[in-house]
Structures are given as structure tokens and as C-alpha cells.
Design a binder for these strands. Structure first.
Ligand code: MN
Ligand code: MN
Ligand code: MN
Ligand code: MN
Lengths: 233, 233
DNA sequence: AATTACTTTTAGATAAGGCTAAAAATATAT
DNA sequence: ATATATTTTTAGCCTTATCTAAAAGTAATT
């Protein structure tokens, strides 16, 4: 089945990181997007649902492999190699999500779990061909940007729906929370990426919003408004 | 990332077997197709390029999980649950191979290694949708049959090219050896699935064949002729 | 500054999956 | 029937990735 004898080089480079190591790298990558300080052991543990002691062990290993710098008690930071590696996993994850939605009729709340597995498949050709097959998409089904081959990530201009003022109009371009509960709620309300949303009113008392979508009026809580990204019109 | 808390049931059923267990099951499945006796420890070890002692350990575990029956020193046999499980992995492997060739422009000698990874992705919906997306293919790129959802495998009528007599004509329907070396050799000679092949002459001395493909005459060794499946015309 | 609380690391254990070397069982040859 | 060869199993060790409990370090509070 697997042919270890030939393709030694391809085998080696494509197996630089285990699935577990890749999941840690990705977690650190995501945490660094929202924090400039060193990423704490506990933060990582929470993100990947493991124990702090396991994180300490893994972080030492990643440090040996030169993908993070680690100072005891001071948290970790990705090296540029680490950033590139992590971005590549995110790239794969998001391309697979696009595939699942565009080609296999998954809904946007069903793709994450499967992509979590598919992101670990080792084959540069596979991901390049997939990218081409999907016509080089720039965003995943949740509106998140897809890193390019070099790991560069072009973030689009976006604001939270909660920041819109009365009578302003925005286009939905992404979600902050991509749990299936939230996504299914959005489906139910008819809110998808690309949907135009107008703020009819804002309630000072609880920060809820009255919005208009497709000529229908709808009231949404502050929590919803703080998890929806829009582009101002 | 992975959400173990919700979907406990889906999590459990889709994680019944580890990647390693699945590879063993598949190896035994393939070995049983060419042997009616219990599959020996050594045969499995050779197939998955591991040591006999590792096989003994794994076989005990598979026996505990009721997918094989194991009698010390007597080899193993798949139970019906084991057969179904293995067939499902083969189904996934071959569907992914079709996907890679049909949609991502892989050549037939490049798909196996990647399919070896993709076959372990756990998602019933994924494989059902993929099947539909590919238009319910019945053979993989090497001409091997794709088991159905129940694990039933419809083998087509086929014979080795070596069994054809002088002046008989066959259609190439599969390969016995699917190593990339052999497949690339076939590419070079212009032999693909569906190709018509006429036997012009057989050489008694070394059992080599003189064949005609696309109006061109070609001499092939007995080894080649014993690794090409054809359907007699 | 001292105490308390929280975070992080260490130490030690476990389970999966692999290995080597030796022992035991089976098969083959004399 | 015995001796030899081969196959298979067992015993013991290793690595990876987890965990719990305890120790050590850092931060917050009085
Ligand atoms: Mn996702
Ligand atoms: Mn993952
Ligand atoms: Mn294959
Ligand atoms: Mn495999």
C-alpha cells in the first residue's frame, strides 16, 4: 500500500508534521490573529480541548522543530516557518470547505468537521489541483479568506453588524462564530453571505437591532449583531 | 476545533476503527480475494510492510472487535462485519481515485498514494455525495470494481491478455499490477482502459506476444501480458 | 510584603502501534 | 522419525500523545 521505498524525499517533506502537531500549529495561528502577545499554554489547551500539561509537552516539540519560539512561562510565538506551515493548513481547510459546499452540496454548517480531517491530507498536487478546480476561490463558505500558496492572507475590509448606525446598509461578508447552531439560525432567518442588510432601528436598552432583509423586517439580538460581519455600502 | 461534546453518537460510529486498523482490514480483504484459506500473519506483514509480531498484536485487537476470527497459528478470516467494513474502505479508496483522475487531472499512476490517505476520512455524507458527484462510477481508474454501499462487489468478466490466442481481439479492462512503473509503461505504449488489443502472434520460446494497438504493431513480454486484463471480443 | 489564587511545568502513568530477539509451534527434508 | 527450516507468537522495549497529581512560578489582593 504505502510505498516508503520510492519517493523518500516526497515522503519526508510531506510528513514533516503529524496531524496533532498540525492541529496545535493551526490553533496557535488562529490565536495569534487576535493577540499580539505570546500565546499562553492555557489558551491553546482551551482551543484544542486538551490539558495544559499536554500543551507544554507539544510546545517543546514544536520548538525543537523550529516552528515556534518557546520561553518557559512566557507562552509561544510562531516562527515564520511556523506561520507558513499553519497558513498552509488553514488554506487546505478552507479550500476543502469550498469544495464541500460548491461541489458536494454540503451546507455551510456541515463542512467544518470534515474539513478538520481533510486539511491533514499530504499532497501538494492535490491541493493545487483542487484550488484550480474550484477556480481559485478567495473566501471560504463562512467568508474567511483563503491564504495563498505562500501563506499570505488577504483580509477584506469588514465590520461587525453591531457597528452600523440607523438607516445604514451593509452586505453580509462573514461570520465571527461559525458554530453550526449559529449558522443554522442564520439559514432560518434567510441571512447568507452576500445578503444585503439595512439597519432600521437600534434599541438602546439591550442593543438589539431591527433590520431589513429582502423587504422583511426582523429583530436580532446584540449577540447576533456582534457575530455577523458586513461590508458598509 | 473537533467538537467531541456534541455529536457523540456520530463521533463514536465514525471512529470505530483507527487508520491503522483500517489498513489491516483492507490488506486482509485483498488477500482473501486470492486465497480461500486463513490469511497468514506473514502475508499481512508483507502486504502492509510491517513485522509479523506487529501483525499478531493487531490481529488480536481486530478479533476483540469482532471483525476477524483468529486462531493462533491458523491465520485470520474476516467476519461479515469485517468484510463490510473493509469493502467500505475500498469503496472510498476507489471513489477518491476516480475523483482525482476525472476532476483533478491526476494520471492513473499518481492516485494511489493520495487515495491511501483519503480513504480514512470519516464522513458518510462525504462519500455518498462524492459518489453522486462522480455519477456513481462502477470502476476505478485501474478497472477495479467499486463496492456498493452494502459492500457488494460486482466483478466483471475478465481474463489475462496472456490467455488470448493468435488473432483473437480483446478490450483492455484493467491491470493486475498497479504500480506507477507499470502504469507509466502502459502510458508510454499507448495502452489504456478501453483500448482494443489484437494478438498478432505468440512466441513459444519466451511467451512474448506481438500485438496490434491503433494499427501499430508492438511486442510485449510475458510479464506484461500477465498483468493486463482484457475482455474477449 | 505577605498571602492567596491562578497558571505553567514536571513527574509519573497509560494506551496505541511499532520494533527486535528469543521461544514455541508448524512444516519440510532427510 | 528426526533433524532442520520456516512461521508465528511472546516478551520486552520504544515513541507519540494523552492524562492526573504535585511542584514551581507568576499574578493579584489584602
Ligand atoms: Mn472551518
Ligand atoms: Mn484538524
Ligand atoms: Mn489504489
Ligand atoms: Mn490507507
Amino acid at each position: 500500500m504505502i510505498n516508503k521505498k520510492n519517493n523518500i524525499f516526497a515522503y519526508l517533506i510531506s510528513n514533516m508534521f503529524t496531524q496533532s502537531e498540525e492541529n496545535y500549529l493551526k490553533a496557535i495561528y488562529h490565536l495569534e490573529l487576535v493577540s499580539t502577545k505570546g500565546i499562553s499554554t492555557n489558551a491553546i489547551a482551551k482551543k484544542i480541548e486538551t490539558k495544559a500539561s499536554s500543551v507544554t509537552d507539544m510546545v517543546k516539540k514544536l520548538s525543537d522543530k523550529k516552528v515556534v519560539v518557546y520561553k518557559k512561562y512566557k507562552g509561544v510565538k510562531l516562527t515564520s516557518l511556523g506561520k507558513k506551515t499553519a497558513a498552509n493548513i488553514v488554506r487546505k481547510h478552507r479550500l476543502w470547505e469550498v469544495f464541500l459546499v460548491e461541489k458536494l452540496n454540503f451546507s455551510w454548517d456541515e463542512v467544518h468537521e470534515v474539513a478538520e480531517q481533510l486539511e491533514h491530507i499530504k499532497s501538494p498536487k492535490l491541493i493545487n489541483q483542487l484550488d484550480a478546480f474550484l477556480d481559485f476561490p478567495k473566501q471560504d463558505p463562512h467568508g474567511d479568506p483563503i491564504p495563498d500558496k505562500e501563506g499570505n492572507l488577504k483580509t477584506i475590509e469588514k465590520s461587525l453588524l453591531a457597528t452600523l448606525h440607523k438607516n445604514e446598509i451593509g452586505i453580509c461578508v462573514g461570520v465571527n462564530d461559525s458554530s453550526s447552531e449559529f449558522l443554522q439560525f442564520l439559514d432560518k432567518q434567510g441571512i447568507t453571505i452576500g445578503q444585503e442588510i439595512k439597519v432600521l432601528d437600534k434599541e438602546d436598552f439591550d442593543n438589539s437591532l431591527s433590520i431589513e432583509i429582502d423587504q422583511k423586517e426582523l429583530s436580532i439580538s446584540s449577540k447576533i449583531a456582534n457575530n455577523l460581519y458586513i461590508q458598509k455600502k
